[in-house]
């Protein structure tokens, strides 16, 4: 019996109400990304987009342990990280559309969303560049003596950058409170992981830095949640960083124009069946959630995304004179 008195099956990792929260967050990211895709097709999104659809369990499983003053550092595929960390859907969408009410007033766009009020330190579009920055956030936490943690999201491709080695080594020797979360979606653009490294698991690389490396099924939000819990506890306890590799998959191509023909059909089908939201939904059904409850969640998510899209579409474009402003901040102390 759970708190609400429902006689359903329990789950050893998460209770039902918490799993509903995570499921709803993942679904929000999915529906948000589907809307971005749709708006792109209507020519309303300038530039390109890198959608997070398919990888939702990673951001949500990790960020569900983080408080508002904990930090995350994100990537070019960052919409999901923002939403999972608590950024507003409407201002996120407005930024993607290049509008004035976007988080960066239209100066960043899809690849550079930040919400410092929620500890979202921004998305860098240089692969691997966020790793030392997260290490630095961890150093700042240590020097200021707070109990915060910093989580760094990056992909399998980033793990071949020098910054991966340098940044994790630095965090390891200084025992900094950082989670290095590798979202291994098996392809760096079109390059298969096996073409780019000999080791099958990026988590193995943790041994080289003397830190724990955890390998999880990244499409299973419960597994990600469990691994992240351990890593966050280690970090908050002053016991240093953890590398968590989450094996996952993009539902779509690398960017908007990529049909992802380099991925074998059977592989795609298998991963699509292994969808993180489908899995969490199945688990909720197993735990006894009713169709009516699920429908209610879906309606809430759909409303939230509709409202965000409407807000973004109604937001004006920034005045062109703003291009010349804000190169430098206020001078000093």
């Amino acid at each position: 019996m759970d708190d609400e008195g429902n006689g359903n099956l329990g789950n050893p990792i998460l209770d039902r109400s918490r799993l509903i929260e995570l499921h709803e967050k993942m679904l929000t990211i999915r529906v948000f990304e589907e809307r971005v895709f749709e708006l792109y097709g209507q020519n309303l999104v300038p530039g390109t987009i890198h959608l997070y659809a398919g990888e939702e369990a990673v951001a949500v499983g990790v960020c569900s342990h983080l408080l508002d003053d904990d930090y995350i550092v994100s990537t070019h595929r960052g919409h999901g990280h923002c939403i999972a960390k608590g950024a507003r859907l409407d201002r996120t969408m407005a930024e993607i559309l290049g509008r004035k009410d976007g988080y960066c007033q239209g100066k960043g766009g899809s690849m550079h969303i930040a919400d410092f009020s929620k500890g979202m330190l921004g998305a860098t579009a240089v692969v691997g560049a966020g790793i030392p920055i997260a290490t630095g956030a961890g150093l700042s936490i240590k020097l200021r003596g707070t109990k915060q943690v910093a989580a760094c999201f990056f992909g399998d491709g980033a793990s071949n950058q020098g910054t991966f080695h340098e940044g994790i080594n630095l965090a390891a020797i200084w025992r900094l409170p950082v989670l290095f979360i590798c979202e291994n979606n098996l392809y760096a653009m079109g390059t298969r992981q096996s073409q780019a490294m000999i080791v099958p698991d990026i988590a193995e690389r943790a041994r080289a830095y003397g830190i724990p490396g955890i390998l999880v099924k990244g499409n299973d939000v419960l597994e990600v949640f469990k691994a992240a819990k351990e890593a966050v506890e280690r970090a908050r306890g002053g016991n240093g960083p953890t590398l968590v590799e989450c094996k996952t998959y993009r539902r779509m191509g690398h960017s908007r124009m990529d049909p992802a023909a380099y991925r074998p059909r059977a592989e795609v089908d298998e991963w699509l069946r292994n969808d993180p939201i489908r899995r969490s939904k199945d688990e909720l059904l197993r735990m006894g959630i009713s169709d009516a409850e699920l429908a209610k969640i879906e309606a809430r998510v759909s409303d939230a995304v509709n409202t965000a899209a409407e807000f973004a579409l109604n937001s004006p474009f920034p005045d062109s004179k703003e291009a010349f402003e804000g190169v430098y901040g206020q001078e000093g102390t």
């Binding site: 976007g102 988080y103 960066c104 007033q105 239209g106 100066k107 960043g108 550079h112 930040a114 919400d115 410092f116 330190l121 921004g122 804000g326 190169v327 430098y328 901040g329």
Partner: peptide
């Protein structure tokens, strides 16, 4: 500073 709209 610029890219994030002056947030940091």
């Amino acid at each position: 500073h610029y890219m994030f709209g002056g947030q940091a």
